[in-house]
Design a protein around this nucleic acid. Structure first.
Lengths: 198, 198
DNA sequence: TCTGTGTGCCAACGCCTGTTGACTACGCTA
DNA sequence: TAGCGTAGTCAACAGGCGTTGGCACACAGA
């Protein structure tokens, strides 16, 4: 607010600050807390405690809680180009990709938890859907008018399984093996992507 | 705590208290707030304000916030007996039932929002799954071992669509007509219920 | 008419929250 | 060695939270 901020969101490549370790620790702790507790219950104080620093450091480096969330959770789905895989296997490929993504990091769980209760979090998820999933579906769907609906259907099944498996932890959903999930959900997404409109 | 409580959870049928209108107003406001804001951000103060009474009345009638939530959100899915519908139409019947349910009241949205961030809320949803969905699926699935997984798959698709449509409000999901959704999701649930294990 | 119980409001409690500003310690450069 | 910017700590703020206890009124049964 006073203008003393260094506004260093873009540091020349290779440059390091003494505070880089602290910043990383904050982001790491923030990701874990947001994923475990959601936005409201993940307090700056608890995050700072996990990172073994003072809460005021969080404010100094990220401005406020919203800024911290934005910095901690940057979701790049790294979706594959579906037009490069055999048309009959797109569904399974997509499911496999998402499963790896969810197993690999907590950011997606954090996004889901936060999106469910926080307005800004929900908007963030809508952005991801629009900017990352829509184009991929658009490339394999001939009729542009059907792209949004088909993409939304895919999202509903993927997010639904993530919700029941990682957030709500329904025992059967949490217990299923990835290959099993791929075999069940693959054909569903395949149909949403390629079946004629019902 | 002092013993002055009337402990009147069970009032003889037909008996009315002067406070019944107030109690109803509290529950109504609580349902709306929990659905709109989730557990943490739906404050007792805001609920009381909506109901135009003092926050202390909420405490008097429902003990504490958890008690209020339990009283406000009692989910009975009223699932149909699937063995009574033609086997080929079970999927669509289930989807149609859930869509009506979601459109009709905010309790399910509240449960979903709360379940995503609150431990007790998630457990509540697991209870509903176990006590209400599992038996229904069990009745139409010949192999008892497959029942939990198939039911979880159905839940994942139904909850996923509810999430993207009512909570995250992905525009394409929110815009689709119920009949359209039924046509898309019906075959998915049908497969989860009846297709041979992959 | 008196009395007791249910109903409601008010003010306050202790705690936790995000956020701020002042103050000290380090490490580089001149 | 002096000076300066950065890194970090500490204590406090204003406000919101769930929750509590006391007090005032209304209405029923005696």
């Amino acid at each position: 607010m006073t203008g003393s901020s260094s506004d260093d969101s873009e540091v020349p490549s290779g440059a390091t600050r003494r505070s880089d370790a602290t910043r990383a620790a904050i982001l790491h702790a923030a990701r874990e807390r947001f994923a475990a507790d959601g936005y409201e219950r993940a307090t700056i104080r608890s995050i700072a405690k996990d990172a073994r620093i003072d809460p005021s450091m969080v404010m100094r480096y990220y401005g406020n809680k919203e800024g911290l969330f934005a910095a901690a959770v940057s979701v790049d789905l790294r979706l594959p180009d579906l037009s490069a895989v055999p048309r009959a296997e797109m569904g399974r490929a997509l499911v496999r990709h998402f499963l790896r993504l969810w197993e690999g990091n907590g950011e997606l769980t954090a996004m889901l938890r936060v999106g469910a209760t926080n307005q800004a979090g929900a908007e963030r998820l809508r952005d991801i859907f629009r900017e990352q999933l829509l184009p991929v579906v658009g490339r394999v769907c001939p009729d542009p008018e059907q792209v949004p609906a088909r993409a939304a259907l895919c999202a509903s099944q993927v997010l639904g399984m993530s919700l029941t498996r990682y957030v709500l932890r329904f025992p059967p959903a949490a217990a299923m093996a990835p290959e099993e999930l791929e075999a069940w959900l693959g054909p569903t997404l395949q149909r949403y992507l390629t079946a004629p409109s019902p």
